[in-house]
Amino acid sequence: MDADKLAVQVADLTVAYQEKPVLWDVDLDVPQGVLMAIVGPNGAGKTTMLKAILGLLTPAAGHVSIFGKPYQQQRSLVGYVPQRGSVDWDFPTSVLDVVMMGNYGKLGWVRRPGAADRRAAQSALEKVGMADYADRQISQLSGGQQQRTFLARALMQDAQVYFMDEPFQGVDATTERAIVDLLKELRAQGKTVLAVHHDLQTVPEYFDWVMLLNVRRIASGPVNEVFTDENLRAAYGGRVGFLNKRQDHEPA
C-alpha cells in the first residue's frame, strides 16, 4: 500500500510495563476513509495502543505515522476521544467550555478562545443533538450526554483521523444511534475513525474495518474479510459466546 494514502501506519509497536509486554510488535495499516473497530478481550492492550499512537505513553519500540509523518508533526490532523471515565465530571465548568477545549490545539499557547470558537462549539453541540445543553454544568449530564459532549469536542478539533476509546461504553440507545450516525457522516466526509469497541455483535453493522488485538495483532482489514470465527477464536481464546450465537443465525 502507498504510505501517503495511509491515514495511520503503525510499525513494530511494542509497549511494556516493567518489562511485561502489553503490546507486542504490532503492525497496523489503516487507509483513509474507513471506520475501524479495535476489538479484543480485556487487557488486550487496546487503550494502550491508542495512547502509544498519540504519544501519551512512550513505547519500548516501534513507530507511528499519520499520513506519512510522525504524530508530533500531525497533531492538527488528529482528534482524540478519551474514555468518558478518565476525567472528573465534577470539575467546575460548562458543556460549551468542554467542547471549546477541542479548539485549544489550534489556538496554541496563551491565546484565548473567542466568539468564533463559541459559535463553532455551539454548532458542534448541535451535530450531536446537545444544542440545548451548552450552558449546563457538566456534573449534571447523564453518561450518554457526557459521551456526546466528548464527541462534540472531537468534532471541534476538525481532524482527519479520530481515535475514540470506547465511545459506546455505557450509553443509552438514543446516544448509540446518534454516535453511529455521526461516524457514518465522518466517513462520508473522507475522515478516518479508529474506535475501541466492545460489542462484537454490532461490529459488522457499525464499522467497515476491524482490528483484532490481543497483545499481538491477530488480524486487521475489511470486516467481511477478517472478522471470521477463526480470527475471533484466536483473539478471544475459547471464551466467545458470541460465536455460537452467530453460527445459529448465519453459518459461516
Binding site: K51, L54, G55, L56, Q72, R75, V78, Y80, P82, S86, V87, D88, F91, T93, V98, M101, Y104, G105, W109, R153
Partner: peptide, 13 residues
Amino acid sequence: ATFDAGLAAALGF
C-alpha cells in the same frame, strides 16, 4: 491540563 491531562498531551500542551 487539570480537567483532561490526556487531551492536553495529545494537543501538544
